[in-house]
Amino acid sequence: MAILVDKDSRIIVQGITGAEGSFHAEQCLAYGDNVVGGVTPGKGGQTALEGKVPVFDSCAEAREQVGANVSLIFVPPPFAADAIMEAAAAGIELIVCITEGIPVAQMVEVKSFVEQTGSRFIGPNCPGVLTPGAAKVGIMPGFIAKEGRVGVISKSGTLTYEAVDQLVREGLGQSTCVGIGGDPIIGTTMKELLALFEADSETDAIVMIGEIGGSMEIEAAKYAKENLTKPVIGFIAGQTAPPGRRMGHAGAIVSGVDESAAAKKEMMAQCGIVVVESPADIGKTVKRALS
């Protein structure tokens, strides 16, 4: 059944009456998604996508009236934090926020709020979730992916597409592709997704694409060493990126770990992850790991 989203997902789009929201909601419908409604405060009672779906004033109403359990958010940055918390408060089980540019301090508060509800949150500033052939909750181009048994976790958008494309060219499809976003504060982390893919009977191997900065890949690698039986193939982008031009020391001393690509790759390798050196070799390496 893959992870996070499938054919039974009942999806609402927050911000469905905006340009981005309506465009992508239409694409999701075209992919075969079960888009059961949209939410735009003040526009409840109207319809969107040329009459195809009802618009509600709030997530709570959408949950109650059409049984929404997944929300896809395209609300502009100044209002996005509120939109995420509204969805969580309404009991929406999976919240995927595409919006880029939400103030970080607001995300700190959102993360803390959502953790007190039962909701799972993905993003923000991410391409969303795609279970090929079943559901596309986000902006990934559905046609590049293929149904299969490789799980993909990635901080980056287009690099995810690149990895998926390489997998398909090696004849490997995907169970679910999850773009988690690369912002300083994100909802669901790599470690949590490793656990979901490990438990998923339709996933045989996991591709994990990270970047320089933060220590999420290191935490995921340590988790994988202790808990995973399936092969994990990892890549870290930014090996040649110059060290950030920083000012002061607080950024360097806060995490206490080395956040460079080299340090992350070393730790991943130590934890048994198959580390890919060239971004062009992701597909080939997965193929080898599975044979």
């Binding site: 980056s156 958008g157 930014g238 090996q239 040649t240």
Partner: peptide
Amino acid sequence: GAGLAMATMDIIKQ
């Protein structure tokens, strides 16, 4: 995309 941009720089170096 930033991730693909970084990966592109990486492969040029490689």
